[in-house]
């Protein structure tokens, strides 16, 4: 598609033009925000996530299920979707089997083409994460076939589980430690809060297209 010689024309102009560029440039000095101890990371992560209007709940080990159920019950969330093959998915399924709450659990089993209309009506979604970053702060999400991309976007409430020992100091550090350039999936994300806008009179508003609430469970 397009004109067959557009590419050649552009490259021939660029190759000619690039000769006018100075031969040497100072190398960019690496930029890295302050290094933090693991403890500082966790506290900064919690502080900045909260400042960005996310709700952060620290929980111990398996207690996250109880915390989740408590929030679901308090907010009268009717439906929750999740990836059934993931680790947290299995925990959820077992929990709901033995102790069904008022919230209906909806597994995401199909492709978006069959699931789309249902997904747009669901109240909440839950995902695991690759960790978080303290400088920012944000969650790191690497969606997988078992835990698709839209789980963290379409439902108005997004629950995310972060392991406290997976909170990195910065984006730069996360890129190195996770070997992001080589290992990242089709879509990888940083998420620092609920969907927001200030397009009307600079007034900060939440939940314009995606989640109105981001609830982070930090598993320590």
């Amino acid at each position: 598609m397009g004109k067959p010689n557009s590419r050649e024309n552009i490259f021939s102009r660029l190759n000619k033009a690039v000769r006018t560029v100075p031969a040497w440039y100072p190398d960019p000095s690496p930029w890295e925000p302050a290094r933090l101890t693991p403890k500082e990371r966790i506290s900064q992560f919690k502080e900045l996530m909260t400042a960005g209007r996310s709700e952060v709940y620290p929980v111990k080990g398996d207690e996250w299920v109880a915390q989740l159920k408590k929030i679901l019950h308090e907010r009268r969330i009717n439906t929750l979707t999740y990836g059934p093959e993931t680790e947290i998915g299995k925990v959820l399924a077992t929990e709901w089997e033995t102790n069904d709450g008022s919230t209906r659990l909806i597994p995401w089993n199909n492709t978006i083409e069959t699931f789309r209309d249902e997904l747009f009506k669901i109240d909440a979604g839950i995902t695991s994460t690759m960790g978080g970053i303290a400088d920012g702060a944000a969650l790191i999400l690497w969606p997988t076939p078992e835990e698709p991309r839209l789980l963290s976007l379409v439902p108005p409430v997004h629950f995310a589980l972060v392991r406290a020992d997976k909170i990195f100091a910065s984006f730069t550090e996360a890129i190195k430690k996770l070997d992001w350039a080589k290992k990242a999936p089709t879509n990888s994300l940083l998420i620092s809060g609920p969907s927001r806008t200030a397009d009307i009179e600079m007034i900060l508003q939440f939940g314009v297209h995606g989640p109105t609430d981001l609830i982070v469970l930090v598993v320590e």
Binding site: P148, L189, L190
Partner: peptide, 21 residues
């Protein structure tokens, strides 16, 4: 802002087995 709400990195279309995208 120190960081925006979303930083979205796309490396390609839906791969085999993936359920959306």
């Amino acid at each position: 802002q120190r960081i925006t709400t979303y930083f979205n990195m796309i490396t390609g279309p839906r791969k085999k087995g993936e359920r959306d995208g």
